[in-house]
């Protein structure tokens, strides 16, 4: 605690946060208009997103410059690390909602629809007489029509191996950083980024197959909804993580980071491991079970 006082860096103004708000608000309002069938919506969305991306670039450049010029003492580093940890915790809660949804529908509501189980939530057998509680299902109304569920072996298993390996390369890069072996740091990061984007590419192929060959879409009842929501948000997080790691790779090759001062690297690595663990959950609960 002591060390955080005195030299703790406190910026006196912040211009990027307002840009962030304007960017986000414009893009969300644009998206909402687009959803409502309003032609101008997508334009606003793009403008908002551009503002947001410029903001991210500007703000992170500022942070990187400040960090490299030694403005952050240990205390600032601790604050940043705490912030990242709690941010990841909030992300865990976000994913928990969708895992919880999967559990609830699979184990409770699908049974209730088929007149199985305990409690008044159970529907009478007269409502859906021919519905059987099996998973995967698109419900008694066969919403979305015939579909084939996604198997676990093949691309998903390969993707599991890819992400697990990328976790190892990421840690290997960290060792390189700590042992002042910049070659290892850069190589490790490059491999991690490569594996990350490879994962995304395979995921895209998998979605392609689902939509065009298996009849499996976001609209395929509760199975399709939970499948695409969980894997989709995860895939989005992999993209974000890979982009962050790319920035870290770029900074590493410019000579940034020391064994004592490399918050950005650590944050990116934590985020990457988090994404990794979520995937393991997905592989077990969405693909295998």
């Amino acid at each position: 605690m002591m060390s955080t006082q005195g030299a703790y860096y406190i910026p006196h103004k912040a211009t990027w946060p307002v840009a962030a708000t304007i960017g986000l608000m414009t893009s969300l309002a644009g998206f909402a208009n687009y959803l409502n069938g309003n032609a101008a919506g997508s334009t606003f969305m793009l403008v908002g997103l551009s503002i947001f991306i410029i903001m991210i670039g500007g703000w992170f450049t500022l942070q990187a410059t400040e960090s490299e010029t030694g403005m952050y003492n240990k205390g600032v580093g601790i604050s940043y690390r705490m912030a990242m940890m709690w941010f990841i915790f909030s992300e865990i809660m976000f994913f928990a909602v969708f895992f919880g949804t999967l559990w609830y529908t699979r184990n409770l509501s699908v049974d209730w629809l088929a007149n199985i189980g305990d409690g008044p939530g159970r529907s009478s057998g007269m409502l859906w007489p021919s519905f059987e509680a099996v998973w995967p299902t698109n419900g008694p109304g066969h919403i979305g029509g015939e579909f084939e569920p996604m198997g676990a072996f093949g691309l998903p298993l390969l993707n599991t191996l890819i992400l697990l390996t990328s976790g190892v390369t990421c840690t290997w890069a960290h060792h390189g950083l700590i042992e002042k072996n910049r070659g290892q740091l850069i190589k490790g990061l490059a491999m991690t980024v490569g594996l990350g984007f490879l994962f995304v590419a395979f995921q895209a192929i998998e979605y392609q197959e689902a939509y065009h060959e298996m009849g499996l879409t976001l609209g395929s009842g509760i199975y399709g909804s939970t499948f695409f929501m969980l894997t989709g948000f995860h895939g989005f997080h992999v993209c974000v993580g890979a982009i962050i790691l790319t920035v870290v790779l770029f900074r590493s090759s410019k000579g940034h980071f020391t064994p004592e001062n490399h918050f950005a690297f650590e944050a990116a690595a934590w985020y990457w491991h988090f994404v990794d663990v979520v995937w393991l959950g997905l592989f077990i609960f969405v693909y295998m079970m």
Binding site: T101, Y104, T105, L108, S109, V110, W112, L113, G121, S123, T137, N138, G139, P140, G141, I143, G144, T217, L218, G219, G221, I222, Y223, G224, S225, T226, F228, M229
Partner: peptide, 12 residues
Amino acid sequence: DTSFFNAAGGGD
């Protein structure tokens, strides 16, 4: 088109 809260699609 998701069915999270739609019983006909298996949701609730």
